[in-house]
Amino acid sequence: MATLQAPVHDKAKCAAGLKAAVAILEKWGATGEQATAILRVSRSTYARAKRRDPAWQVSLDEDQLTRISLVLNIHAALRVIFDNPENLYGFMAMANHNDYFNGRAPLEIIASGGILALYEVFQRIDSLRGAQW
Protein backbone atom coordinates (compact mmCIF):
# COMPACT_ATOMS: atom_id res chain seq x y z
CA MET A 1 0.00 0.00 0.00
CA ALA A 2 1.42 3.38 -1.05
CA THR A 3 1.54 6.21 1.45
CA LEU A 4 1.11 9.84 0.56
CA GLN A 5 3.93 12.13 1.50
CA ALA A 6 3.87 15.88 1.61
CA PRO A 7 6.06 17.47 -1.05
CA VAL A 8 9.46 18.59 0.15
CA HIS A 9 10.17 22.24 -0.49
CA ASP A 10 13.55 23.92 -0.59
CA LYS A 11 13.94 25.67 2.79
CA ALA A 12 15.96 28.54 1.31
CA LYS A 13 13.25 29.20 -1.31
CA CYS A 14 10.56 29.04 1.36
CA ALA A 15 12.48 31.63 3.38
CA ALA A 16 12.91 33.88 0.34
CA GLY A 17 9.18 33.77 -0.41
CA LEU A 18 8.26 34.44 3.20
CA LYS A 19 10.68 37.37 3.43
CA ALA A 20 9.19 38.88 0.26
CA ALA A 21 5.63 38.49 1.57
CA VAL A 22 6.59 40.02 4.93
CA ALA A 23 8.19 43.01 3.18
CA ILE A 24 5.04 43.55 1.10
CA LEU A 25 2.76 43.26 4.13
CA GLU A 26 4.90 45.84 5.95
CA LYS A 27 4.56 48.25 3.01
CA TRP A 28 0.78 47.70 3.10
CA GLY A 29 0.84 48.77 6.75
CA ALA A 30 0.03 45.37 8.27
CA THR A 31 0.76 44.96 11.96
CA GLY A 32 2.79 41.97 13.11
CA GLU A 33 -0.40 40.38 14.42
CA GLN A 34 -2.12 40.85 11.05
CA ALA A 35 0.88 39.51 9.12
CA THR A 36 1.16 36.38 11.25
CA ALA A 37 -2.57 35.69 10.78
CA ILE A 38 -2.44 36.31 7.02
CA LEU A 39 0.60 34.07 6.51
CA ARG A 40 -0.32 31.60 9.29
CA VAL A 41 3.17 31.69 10.80
CA SER A 42 4.35 32.03 14.39
CA ARG A 43 5.56 35.33 15.79
CA SER A 44 9.09 33.97 15.97
CA THR A 45 9.04 32.87 12.31
CA TYR A 46 7.64 36.27 11.34
CA ALA A 47 10.37 38.04 13.34
CA ARG A 48 13.09 35.96 11.69
CA ALA A 49 11.68 36.67 8.21
CA LYS A 50 11.50 40.37 9.02
CA ARG A 51 15.24 40.42 9.83
CA ARG A 52 15.94 39.25 6.27
CA ASP A 53 18.97 37.17 7.29
CA PRO A 54 20.21 35.72 3.97
CA ALA A 55 21.34 32.47 5.64
CA TRP A 56 18.00 31.82 7.37
CA GLN A 57 15.93 28.90 6.11
CA VAL A 58 12.47 27.66 7.06
CA SER A 59 10.11 24.77 6.37
CA LEU A 60 6.62 25.79 5.30
CA ASP A 61 3.53 23.74 4.55
CA GLU A 62 1.32 23.96 1.47
CA ASP A 63 -1.18 26.29 3.15
CA GLN A 64 1.55 28.73 4.13
CA LEU A 65 3.06 28.63 0.64
CA THR A 66 -0.36 29.27 -0.89
CA ARG A 67 -0.83 32.28 1.40
CA ILE A 68 2.58 33.65 0.39
CA SER A 69 1.68 33.12 -3.27
CA LEU A 70 -1.61 35.00 -2.85
CA VAL A 71 0.12 37.96 -1.16
CA LEU A 72 2.72 38.08 -3.96
CA ASN A 73 0.00 37.82 -6.61
CA ILE A 74 -2.09 40.58 -5.01
CA HIS A 75 1.03 42.75 -5.05
CA ALA A 76 1.68 41.89 -8.71
CA ALA A 77 -1.91 42.79 -9.66
CA LEU A 78 -1.64 46.10 -7.78
CA ARG A 79 1.61 46.86 -9.66
CA VAL A 80 -0.29 46.48 -12.94
CA ILE A 81 -3.20 48.64 -11.76
CA PHE A 82 -1.26 51.47 -10.08
CA ASP A 83 1.76 53.45 -11.23
CA ASN A 84 2.31 55.47 -8.07
CA PRO A 85 3.66 54.01 -4.81
CA GLU A 86 0.99 55.77 -2.71
CA ASN A 87 -1.78 53.74 -4.32
CA LEU A 88 0.32 50.64 -4.89
CA TYR A 89 1.08 50.29 -1.19
CA GLY A 90 -1.83 52.27 0.25
CA PHE A 91 -4.70 50.50 -1.54
CA MET A 92 -4.78 47.54 0.83
CA ALA A 93 -5.34 49.81 3.87
CA MET A 94 -7.95 52.05 2.20
CA ALA A 95 -11.65 51.62 2.92
CA ASN A 96 -13.30 50.03 -0.09
CA HIS A 97 -17.01 50.56 -0.69
CA ASN A 98 -17.41 48.06 -3.51
CA ASP A 99 -19.43 44.87 -3.12
CA TYR A 100 -17.85 42.33 -0.81
CA PHE A 101 -15.68 44.95 0.94
CA ASN A 102 -18.62 47.03 2.22
CA GLY A 103 -16.43 49.84 3.55
CA ARG A 104 -13.72 47.57 4.91
CA ALA A 105 -10.11 47.75 3.79
CA PRO A 106 -8.80 44.68 1.93
CA LEU A 107 -6.08 44.35 4.59
CA GLU A 108 -8.75 44.19 7.29
CA ILE A 109 -10.48 41.34 5.47
CA ILE A 110 -7.36 39.26 4.85
CA ALA A 111 -6.20 39.82 8.44
CA SER A 112 -9.08 37.58 9.54
CA GLY A 113 -6.62 34.77 8.79
CA GLY A 114 -8.99 32.81 6.59
CA ILE A 115 -7.45 31.56 3.37
CA LEU A 116 -10.80 31.90 1.58
CA ALA A 117 -10.92 35.62 2.45
CA LEU A 118 -7.35 36.00 1.17
CA TYR A 119 -8.27 34.24 -2.06
CA GLU A 120 -11.47 36.28 -2.52
CA VAL A 121 -9.58 39.56 -2.05
CA PHE A 122 -6.99 38.38 -4.57
CA GLN A 123 -9.74 37.52 -7.08
CA ARG A 124 -11.44 40.90 -6.66
CA ILE A 125 -8.20 42.86 -7.04
CA ASP A 126 -7.00 40.70 -9.91
CA SER A 127 -10.25 41.35 -11.77
CA LEU A 128 -9.50 45.10 -11.67
CA ARG A 129 -6.46 44.70 -13.87
CA GLY A 130 -8.57 43.34 -16.72
CA ALA A 131 -6.59 41.70 -19.51
CA GLN A 132 -3.38 43.61 -18.87
CA TRP A 133 -1.05 40.65 -18.40
Rank of each mutant, 00 (worst) to 15 (best):
H75P: 02
N73H: 11
V41M: 06
G114W: 00
V22E: 03
T3L: 14
L128T: 01
E86L: 14
Y89E: 09
D53P: 11
A77Y: 03
R48S: 13
H97V: 04
A47Q: 10
Y89N: 10
Y119W: 11
T31E: 07
M94P: 10
A21H: 09
K11P: 10
K11T: 07
A105K: 10
N96K: 07
Q57V: 07
M94I: 05
N98T: 15
R104K: 11
T31S: 15
V80F: 08
G113I: 06
E120K: 13
D63A: 13
D83R: 12
T3H: 14
A20M: 06
L88N: 09
W56C: 05
A6Q: 11
R124L: 12
G29S: 03
A95M: 11
E26S: 11
N98Q: 15
Q64D: 11
I110A: 11
N102L: 15
L78D: 04
A93P: 00
P85T: 15
R40W: 10
G90H: 04
E26K: 15
F122K: 02
L107K: 05
D99M: 05
S44Y: 06
L65D: 02
L88M: 14
G130C: 08
F82G: 08
Q57I: 08
R40Y: 11
L39C: 08
E86P: 06
G29P: 04
F82H: 13
L107A: 05
P106H: 02
Y100F: 14
G32S: 09
A6K: 12
T31H: 00
I115N: 00
T3Y: 13
G114Q: 10
P106D: 03
N96Q: 11
A37P: 01
L4N: 03
W56S: 06
H97F: 10
S69Y: 01
P54G: 06
P54S: 08
R104Q: 12
I24E: 02
